[in-house]
């Protein structure tokens, strides 16, 4: 399998490294498979959430209208989408070896942290309102679905921080570049999952 065009845009490993390419192909493909497995995990939690979003599942406790804020959801959505875009810019900077790489990564990290901050604020507010997971089946599902995504974002932020260190220490070695490429898949993937979250949980709940 020899291919001329680099298979993964956002990566520039040079043409004379067939072995690095093969290794990278394996890693990228494996990571895709992992993401798809993760997708199924999210799908299961989504389905559970959907099946508990009804009066029986809410067991006379709070309903979406009582606890969600459309404004906050919109802000989180905007921030995460923007961070996807800035990661795209980082990928371009990586590909064309531009010095702006680290800056874009740092911006993405800050946006990720801002997203987490907002989400945390919402969750704290919900606890204050008594919308705790122990209250009903529906709230249990909410408290697994949204924080599960949040945990993924947190892991992404940690990974970003580590990569910032590695870029600084090691420069753009093959290993560092392929890791950044995988991180970008992860980050964009989380944004796709978030489409599900804001559509099903927030918009679906408030419509």
């Amino acid at each position: 399998m020899t291919q001329d065009a680099p298979r993964h845009p956002g990566l520039n490993l040079g043409r004379h490294h067939p072995e690095a390419h093969a290794e990278n192909e394996k890693l990228m493909f494996g990571f895709w498979v992992f993401l798809m497995s993760d997708l199924i995990l999210f799908g299961i939690v989504f389905a559970t959430y959907a099946s508990l979003t009804n009066p029986m599942g809410q067991a006379g406790g709070p309903t979406p209208r009582d606890v969600f804020s459309l404004t906050s959801a919109a802000m989180q959505t905007a921030i995460l989408l923007l961070s996807s875009f800035t990661f795209g810019l980082a990928s371009l900077a990586l590909k064309y070896r531009q010095p702006s790489l680290r800056a874009w990564l740092a911006v993405t990290l800050l946006l990720g942290l801002a997203f987490l901050g907002l989400e945390l604020r919402d969750l704290v507010q919900m606890v204050a309102d008594g919308a705790v997971p122990q209250r009903s089946g529906w709230l249990s599902a909410f408290w697994v679905l949204v924080p599960l995504h949040g945990l993924h974002v947190a892991a992404g932020c940690l990974w970003l921080a580590v990569m910032l260190v590695q870029v600084t220490l090691f420069g753009l070695t093959t290993q560092v570049s392929t890791r950044l490429a995988r991180l970008s898949l992860f980050w964009h993937f989380l944004d796709v999952v978030w489409i599900g979250v804001f559509s099903v949980v927030y918009l679906g709940g408030l419509a």
Binding site: H8, P9, G10, S84, G88, L185, H188, F189, D191, V192, I195, G196, S199, L203, G204, A207
Partner: peptide, 22 residues
Amino acid sequence: SGWVIALCALLQAMVHFRYFLH
């Protein structure tokens, strides 16, 4: 509104796959 939300979500997911995940 339910249909609008579902349709937009589906389209947006496709956009993400096409433009961000290549």
